[in-house]
Design a protein around this nucleic acid. Structure first.
Length: 481
RNA sequence: GGUGCGGUACCCAAGUGGCUAAGGGAGCAGUCUGCAAAACUGUUAUUCGGCGGUUCAAAUCCGCCCCGCACCUCCA
């Protein structure tokens, strides 16, 4: 089976073939760090993290680059509002970005270029565009000459003449055409600026991605360029115009765009004010549950957020957690190599599950279906554990497959694995030592068969949202979400 | 107005021409358990927004209609 991806550029699913065999150069538009990270951002970066992980699972070397647009109108505006230096504001938000995003178990990019560290590269491209006639300077500003770029509108499927009649484009007398957009903006008093051949100023919004992808990945043509659907027009359309105008080569082979997070079916966005930051959500839910929620639906479809849905995702996570903890108790000590003589091959079901999993993921990263395979595997393991005579080697193979495939989706990875005890108690009015103290007391009651007292302790814990499970190997506890 | 996406059970959500319409949550009944929880078993869509059409065969293709959302302006 081959991997097929939906390419926004061609509006269809295509077989994925990178330029160079087994190497994928991938650039995903990062955030403009003027505010906190919200769930919409998380969806984008989780989606592309899954894509990256699956490509790596499929034996590709992935060069993943994601930028920070750390100087921009919005940063300047916000900085003025809170009376802080724009670059310091951006820096602070970048630090917060990593805190919030890392919790979601997102793999590090190869590089995180910033606009402010790539001014020279940006100027170089603008200069090149001016020399080729794709751009013109007016009064300290530099604009892109959209009419000169024949393919303009191809990505977003827009007709240039329609755009003009749309009348929503701002009229600026100095521009040759209302569609022309700024590559370089003349310095304004009190704003950060850099020297350039056209005078002091700063880069326009779209140029940084053209410059930084070229600079960081050393290739005119990217294999994958990703981002949110809201960036298709004008941002990505403009990037194509800039990059291809400058290099004369195809900018990106595959354009992948993730769908929005919505609330009550409406797009979650800063402008509508209906957004939830990750910090807000983390107060009530674990990042792992947020991640599972985000991948429970295909990355291109809109996903509607609600508290209940994250809670549902948390329950799914519990299901995985339960099976893995039960497994751990049973097969923890098994050395597969030592017992290998008896059971040399992995059971057939492992290969079947893996085949189903890859078939789902090969179809434009269908995580919803892939997830179903993991639940099927979970069920199969549970059934196997019900058997009178346990086949521990088989169980071990099965759980290894579950974990390995789960990790492709970024679930239960080592490190950020499942939820830790402290993580579980987030927002609860009780500490881990306290729980353990009560458990010990209940254990003593149970030993003495004082059921009433024992149940009282259990009820007490339940009232605080803690559920107990008595197993053959002792009592386990978890938190009701 | 232009462009695009979607409407599948109580809820979420896969499936885009042919095996019994995945999977998760919720509910109900049962097994297990000191009792629970977890887990397991059974059960909840003769039907896929509506109406026509094509076909031996359609949730899947075509036409029309109804409804929802997004983009065309900063947004992941």
């Amino acid at each position: 089976m081959a991997l097929f991806v939906y390419n926004t550029l061609t509006h269809q699913k295509e077989e994925f073939k990178p330029l160079k065999d087994k190497v994928v150069n991938m650039y995903v538009c990062g955030v403009t760090p003027y505010d906190e990270v919200h769930l919409g951002h998380a969806r984008c970066y989780v989606a592309f993290d899954v894509i990256r992980r699956y490509l790596e699972y499929s034996d590709y070397t992935v060069n993943y680059v994601q930028n920070f647009t750390d100087i921009d109108d919005k940063i300047i505006k916000r900085a003025q509002e809170v009376q802080i230096d724009p670059l310091a504001l951006a820096q602070k938000n970048i630090e917060e970005y990593f805190k919030d995003i890392n919790a979601l178990n997102i793999k590090k990019a190869k590089a995180y270029p910033k606009v402010t560290e790539n001014i020279a590269e940006i100027i170089k491209i603008i200069d090149n565009l001016v020399n080729k006639g794709y751009a013109y300077a007016v009064d300290g500003d530099v604009y892109y000459r959209v009419a000169k770029f024949q393919k303009y509108g191809a990505l977003s499927k827009r007709d240039v003449s329609q755009l003009k009649s749309g009348a929503r484009v701002e009229i600026d007398e100095r521009k040759e055409d209302p569609l022309d957009f700024a590559l370089w903006k003349k310095e304004k008093p009190g704003e950060p600026s850099w020297p350039s051949p056209w005078g002091s100023g700063r880069p326009g919004w779209h140029i940084e991605c053209s410059a930084m992808s070229l600079h960081e990945l050393k290739t005119a043509t990217l294999d994958i360029h990703g981002g949110g659907q809201d960036l298709i027009f004008p941002h990505h359309e403009n990037e194509i115009a800039q990059s291809e105008g400058s290099t004369g080569k195809l900018f990106a082979k595959y354009w992948l765009h993730n769908g929005f997070v919505t609330i009550n079916k409406e797009k979650m966005s800063k402008s509508l004010g209906n957004f939830f930051t990750l910090k807000q959500i983390y107060q009530k839910h674990s990042p792992a549950a947020v991640r599972l929620f985000l991948i429970s639906q295909h990355y291109r479809s809109p996903i509607d957020y609600s508290e209940d849905k994250i809670t549902e995702a948390a329950k799914g996570l519990d299901k995985f957690q339960n099976v893995l903890e039960n497994m751990r108790e049973m097969v923890n000590q098994i050395n597969l190599d030592a017992i290998g003589k008896k059971f040399t091959a992995a059971p057939e079901i492992c290969q079947q599950m893996e085949d189903k999993f890859t078939a789902a993921m090969d179809d434009d990263f269908n995580t919803a279906e892939a997830l179903a395979v993991l639940f099927e595997m979970t069920n199969a393991i549970n059934i196997e554990m019900e058997q009178k005579e346990l086949d521990l080697v088989k169980l071990s193979y099965m759980s290894r497959t579950l974990v390995r495939l789960g990790q492709v989706l970024g679930l239960f990875a080592p490190g950020s694995a499942l939820r830790t005890a402290e993580d579980k108690l987030k927002g609860k009015n009780i500490s881990v030592p306290e729980v353990e103290r009560l458990l010990a007391r209940r254990e003593e009651y149970r030993r003495q068969k004082k059921w009433a007292e024992s149940d009282q302790v259990r009820d007490e814990l339940l009232a605080k949202g803690i559920i107990l499970e008595d197993t053959a190997h002792g009592t386990r506890w978890k938190v009701k979400e």
